[in-house]
C-alpha cells in the first residue's frame, strides 16, 4: 500500500490532462492499447489449441510440452527477448529466412512488440484455458454426442460456450501481463517512440528525464490494472452464486 500511496501523492492532479496530451505520452498509451490486445489475440490463436492438446491429448512427451509452454512464466523476460531475437531477428533461425524471402523483419516493429508480449503472456492464457477444459471434462460433450450431435454442433453449442469463462479469464490475465511487459519487449523490439515504446517503457525512460510523465503514466496503468482486478473478481463472485 505504501508505494501506491507514494505514487498517488506525487500525481500532478491539476495538469494531468495536459500531461496526457503530450505526443510521447499519447503514443505510449496508444501502443499500450493495441499491443496487449494484439498479443492476446495472438495468444488465443495459438494458445487455445495448445491448451486443448495439453488437456485432452494423449501423446508422449505431454509433460515436457507443458513444461516448455510454461517456461516463459519463470524465464527472465530479458532472456526471452534475447531468445526471440535469435529466432526471429534478421540473423535468427527463422528471421533470416523470412527477411531473405519476404523482406520481413520483426524486431523494432509494433508487431514485434506484440510477438514479444505474446511470448511472455501466452502461458497465462494456456494454463487457465487448460484448467477450464480439464474441469469441464467430456461429460456434456458425450451427452451431446449420444443425442446425435456431430463434431461441429458439439463444438459450437457445447464446448465453446462451456469454455467461455475460462477463455475470458485467461485472456484477461494474458492481456494484463502483456500490458506490463517490459523486458522482452525492450530487448526484442527496442524503445522507439511511436513504434515500440509502450507505456511501461515510456515510464521507465521518463523517470530519468520527466518524472511527471512517469507518474501520470503509472497512474493510468494502476487504474487500468485495478479495473481489471475488479472485473475479474466481480465475475468470479457472480459465478459462485
Amino acid at each position: 500500500m505504501l508505494p501506491l500511496a507514494g505514487l498517488l501523492a506525487n500525481v500532478p492532479w491539476t495538469d494531468i490532462s495536459a500531461q496526457l496530451r503530450t505526443p510521447d505520452v499519447r503514443n505510449a498509451l496508444y501502443l499500450s492499447l493495441i499491443c496487449p490486445v494484439g498479443a492476446t489475440l495472438l495468444s488465443i490463436a495459438l494458445g487455445v489449441r495448445l491448451a486443448w492438446l495439453l488437456a485432452r491429448g494423449r501423446f508422449p512427451g505431454r509433460g515436457l510440452v507443458r513444461g516448455l509452454v510454461t517456461l516463459p512464466m519463470v524465464l527472465p523476460p530479458v532472456v526471452g527477448g534475447v531468445a526471440l531475437l535469435y529466432a526471429f531477428g534478421r540473423g535468427g533461425l527463422v528471421g533470416r529466412w523470412g527477411y531473405r524471402e519476404f523482406g520481413i523483419s520483426l524486431p523494432y516493429t509494433t508487431f514485434g512488440v506484440m510477438v514479444a508480449s505474446a511470448f511472455v503472456s501466452m502461458p497465462f492464457l494456456i494454463m487457465t484455458v487448460e484448467a477450464g477444459i480439464v474441469q469441464t471434462g467430456v461429460r456434456f460433450e458425450e451427452a451431446a454426442e449420444t443425442l446425435g450431435a456431430g463434431r461441429l454442433m458439439v463444438l459450437r453449442r457445447i464446448t465453446l460456450p462451456m469454455l467461455g469463462p475460462s477463455l475470458m479469464a485467461g485472456a484477461t490475465l494474458c492481456w494484463a501481463r502483456a500490458l506490463g511487459e517490459l523486458g522482452a519487449t525492450l530487448t526484442f523490439a527496442g524503445n522507439l517512440s511511436g513504434t515500440t515504446q509502450t507505456t511501461p517503457l515510456a515510464v521507465f525512460i521518463a523517470l530519468q528525464t520527466k518524472p511527471q510523465d512517469a507518474v501520470v503514466l503509472s497512474l493510468v496503468l494502476f487504474v487500468v490494472s485495478l479495473a481489471v482486478l475488479l472485473v475479474l473478481r466481480g465475475r468470479r463472485m457472480v459465478g459462485h452464486q
Binding site: 456434456f140 454426442e145 449420444t146 453449442r157 462451456m162
Partner: peptide
C-alpha cells in the same frame, strides 16, 4: 457407428443436462 449416428438415447447417472441451455 459413432454415438452421434446411433439411434440410442442415454440417461446418464448425473443426468448431464447442458447447464447453459
Amino acid at each position: 457407428i459413432a454415438p452421434a449416428q446411433r439411434c440410442v438415447g442415454v440417461m446418464f447417472q448425473d443426468y448431464r443436462l447442458f447447464p447453459r441451455l
